[in-house]
Design a protein around this nucleic acid. Structure first.
Length: 804
RNA sequence: GCCGCUGUGGCGGAAUUGGCAGACGCACUUGACUCAAAAUCAAGCGGGUAACACCGUGCCGGUUCGAGUCCGGCCAGCGGCACCA
């Protein structure tokens, strides 16, 4: 009688063994493989089964690569700056550094339950001064390159978190963190000129093996558009108004112009008659929040009383103000062609402005227009010298034609805005800048970094737009590093994204106190080959990291400019009915009990078995019984077979190669749920075979053990040892399938009449068409009772007899 | 509103280039073992029928010898963007 599967004893044993005998070692000869997890924020709540999913995915992939002969970079670290630690500090009066350290300790303990093959020597923590020294160093470099600059303007402000936010952090007009509606606040801000990289951030996407969805989200976020800036004279005045349009082909159809209420000329365009209404509109707009502006579908606006001159035909068109025009995109002014733009159409209808069609749809004007015709397809009409041209052609040529005539120029625009980079909070990296009354903004000298975050009495955000650091006089007051005059430190801190934008570089050289990363190690181990994490960072962390990487490439710190070659987004694990797991909902499933009762190996496999890894999955505890039973059955089969010592037969050899082939294929396709079902299926087949023979031959069982190892490392390592091996199962290489050995001599073929299966026949795999059809007809017998019009045989697939 | 993804048993989900729909697992039913239960093992498990037939992959249509898969048109759910001119 074989000993029962004791997961606790086995897992404890091998955990200890691997610690003493690591299996992932750099011998300098193996190629590297860098498989990275998105590092977690170590919250006080610990981890749940949802965290496990991503970490198990990356570990399975890593161990697979390890068995294929790579040296793994598979590190873990902590994204530990941020609001929760600070809020906790405020509530409990404990320094965030202390609560963070405690959370890290707890998180690490829980993550170790997964038995992932992390290299803890590479661990990083964004709040460690030796780490944020380099976060600050990058900022100083950006400042010196003119990429970090100060600006005062109305930014997104979260009144609940009491800090400014980047555009990327505003979701549906609300704070990404806490959900409070975001307001505008005029603040002096540090900005990063990410827009300078807009084109490269766009073109770089082409070569990346990323989900199309994420690439598209970044593409849309960057929002590149081609068009023209056109100058309109103002009737009776010397100034011009420049508008941006992507449809210069419709210029003859412009019947009015709209300026954003914040446009610099807005107020001055009012006439004595309109002044009151114009001033009121400008004031009202400035009071309205983002959410307000977004929820209002109905267009509002006010006529200024002034007119612009269409440069092509000298038509006088009224100038309006409306908040549907954004001040910070394009020129803050647009020409309006209601016949061919939805928004302009709506506005014209509401305010009774004429509509002139300039593109004939299907050769004629649309009668009684009820909506704008926005396609650029059709022939130009009412357009002077452009009449008769194809609008699609003109759309491309018009910018250059306008440029030649000196009426404007071709240009491109981006939706991407510069990155609001300062936060008015305590628990972040201090921005290493000194404000000197004589020299202006001076960076902290590089050799003085890190600029340490000082201790404060109160972490509470002030809400005034000042950081809590502003209250520490002895820290704020300093000398200018250039001229020595009395100066003041910048008191804003960096956003949480600062550290996460580059942390993956540091893992490969985390103890280097001379450089961010040494050239040698960067060349050897970077960039990241596989990055695994949730999709929620598609335009946040993933865009910022690409920007940082491109910048570091430009200053020669690294010699690649895309950080993550391949990206995989795992789906979320939710509670019942797809509800996100959260403490407040009370639906969080902790892995602790499951590991205790079923073992780490079972939970690892079940995490994969719940569904396709890229899709969300509802957690159901009961399903884990299935994988647990499978491991028990395989355990028993393996031990019984070891006793039985049966010789291999043809079926076993075939099964072994098919198994290796199937598992590898599915793994390569990242179809990990079907890898698990594949193991179960083949195990059932082996049990079936063993009924006749008393067991399965050694080589086949060993092949199964090796394939199973990345998924269930403990039981595999134990069985490998029980099968008499002294080296680790992870050093045995990945089993190769011999496709010749997989081939069946005889195959099952369905026989159909008119496409409906009526019989199944066993035939030699290389049967001829004639024989196959003959055998098929024979099997059908009396069911074949009509006139046969066609006989089809698709080799190894099907016989189909078509009858009338 | 625009863009993208997804619709398959009671449930989670399988199905290379179109080729036996429902693999694998959960739940359930029955049987064996047991004083009994749990565990384990065996059998069954889309609808329908006594058994066939027949009907079944969101809905309607098309292509094809043959459609879950391809094409056209709808419907529903999820996600992204949200006046970017």
């Amino acid at each position: 009688m074989a000993a029962p599967y004791n997961h606790r004893a086995i897992e404890t044993k091998w955990r200890k063994h691997w610690e003493e005998h690591p299996v992932n070692v750099d011998d300098g000869k193996k190629p590297k493989y860098y498989c990275l997890d998105m590092f977690p924020y170590p919250s006080g709540n610990g981890i749940h089964v949802g965290h496990w999913r991503g970490y198990v995915l990356s570990d399975v992939w890593s161990r697979y690569k390890l068995m294929q002969g790579y040296y793994l970079i598979h590190p873990m670290g902590w994204d530990a700056f941020g609001l929760p630690a600070e809020n906790y500090a405020i509530k409990m009066g404990i320094h965030p550094a202390i609560s963070t350290a405690e959370n890290v300790r707890h998180f690490k303990e829980q993550i170790n339950q997964i038995a992932a093959i992390y290299d803890w020597d590479r661990e990083v923590n964004t709040t460690d001064p030796e780490f944020y020294k380099w976060t600050q160093w990058i900022f100083v470099k950006m400042f010196k390159e003119g990429l970090a600059y100060e600006k005062e303007f109305p930014i997104n402000w979260c009144p609940s978190c009491k800090t400014g936010l980047a555009n990327e952090e505003v979701v549906n007009g609300c704070c990404e963190r806490c959900g409070a509606p975001v307001t505008k606040k005029n603040l002096r801000q540090w900005m990063l000129r990410i827009t300078k990289y807009a084109d490269r951030l766009l073109s770089g996407l082409d070569g990346l093996d990323w989900p199309e969805k994420v690439k598209k989200m970044q593409t849309d976020w960057i929002g590149k558009s081609y068009g023209a800036e056109v100058d309109f004279a103002i009737d009776g005045r010397d100034e011009k108004i420049t508008v941006y349009t992507t449809r210069p082909d419709t210029l003859y159809g412009a019947t009015f112009m709209v300026l954003a209420p914040e446009h610099e000329l807005a107020a001055s365009l009012a006439t004595p008659e309109t002044k009151e209404a114009v001033d009121k509109y400008i004031l009202d707009s400035s009071m309205r929040s983002n959410v307000d502006r977004m929820q209002d579908k109905e267009k509002t606006g006010v006529f200024t009383g002034s007119y612009a001159i269409n440069p092509l035909n000298n038509a006088k068109i009224p100038i309006w103000l409306s908040d549907y025009v954004l001040a910070d995109y394009g020129t803050g002014a647009i020409m309006c062609v209601p016949a061919h733009d939805d928004r302009d159409f709506e506005f014209a209808k509401k305010f009774n402005i004429p509509i002139i069609q300039v593109i004939a749809k299907d050769g004629k004007e649309i009668e009684n227009m009820t909506e704008a015709y926005t396609d650029a397809s059709g022939t130009m009409i009412n357009s002077g010298e452009w009449n008769g041209m194809e609008s699609a052609v003109l759309k491309k040529e018009a910018p250059h034609m306008i440029e030649k005539r000196g009426l404007g120029h071709a240009t491109v625009n981006y939706k991407l805005r510069d990155w609001v980079f300062s936060r008015q909070r305590y628990w972040g990296e201090p921005i290493p800048i000194i404000h000197c009354p004589h020299c202006g903004n001076v960076p902290v000298p590089e050799e003085e970094l890190p600029l340490r975050l000082p201790e404060v009495e109160s972490y509470e955000p002030t809400g005034t737009g000042e950081s809590p650091l502003a209250a520490i006089d002895e820290w704020v007051n300093c000398k200018c590093p250039v001229c020595g005059a009395d100066a003041k430190r910048e008191t804003n801190t960096m956003p949480q994204w600062a550290g996460s934008s580059w942390y993956f570089l540091r893992y490969v050289d985390n103890k280097n106190d001379k450089e961010l990363v040494s050239k040698e190690k960067a060349d050897k181990y970077l960039p990241v080959d596989m990055y695994i994490g949730g999709v929620e960072h598609a335009v946040l962390h993933l865009l910022y990291s690409r920007f940082y990487t491109k910048f570091l490439y430009d200053i020669g710190a690294i010699d690649f400019d895309e950080p993550f070659q391949k990206l995989f987004n795992q789906g979320m694990i939710t509670g019942k009915n797809g509800i996100k797991m959260s403490k407040s909902k009370g639906n969080v499933v902790s892995p602790d009990d499951l590991v205790r009762d079923y073992g780490c190996d079972s939970l690892r496999m079940y995490e994969l078995f719940v569904g396709p890894p890229e899709l969300d999955a509802e957690w159901d505890d009961r399903g884990i019984d299935g994988v647990y039973r499978f491991l028990n059955r395989f355990w028993k089969l393996a031990l019984d077979s070891r006793e039985a010592k049966v010789a291999e037969n043809k079926e076993m050899v075939k099964l072994r190669h098919k198994l290796a082939y199937d598992i590898t294929q599915r793994l390569e396709n990242f179809s990990l749920n079907t890898v698990i079902s594949g193991f179960m299926e083949y195990n059932n087949r082996m049990i079936e075979l063993a009924r006749k023979t008393g067991g399965i031959d050694q080589e086949t069982v060993e092949c199964f053990i090796r394939l199973l190892a990345p998924f269930a490392p403990h039981i595999s390592e134990e069985l490998w040892e029980l099968y008499g091996h002294s080296e680790s199962v992870f050093s045995t290489g990945w089993p190769q399938a011999d496709e010749e050995a997989m081939k069946d001599d005889e195959i099952e073929i369905p026989v159909q009449i008119n496409g409906k299966t009526k019989a199944v026949i066993m035939v030699p795999a290389d049967i001829s068409k004639e024989d196959a059809i003959a055998r098929g007809r024979e099997a059908l017998g009396g069911k074949l009772n009509g006139t046969v019009v066609k006989e089809i045989y698709v080799p190894k697939k099907i016989v189909n007899i078509v009858q009338k």
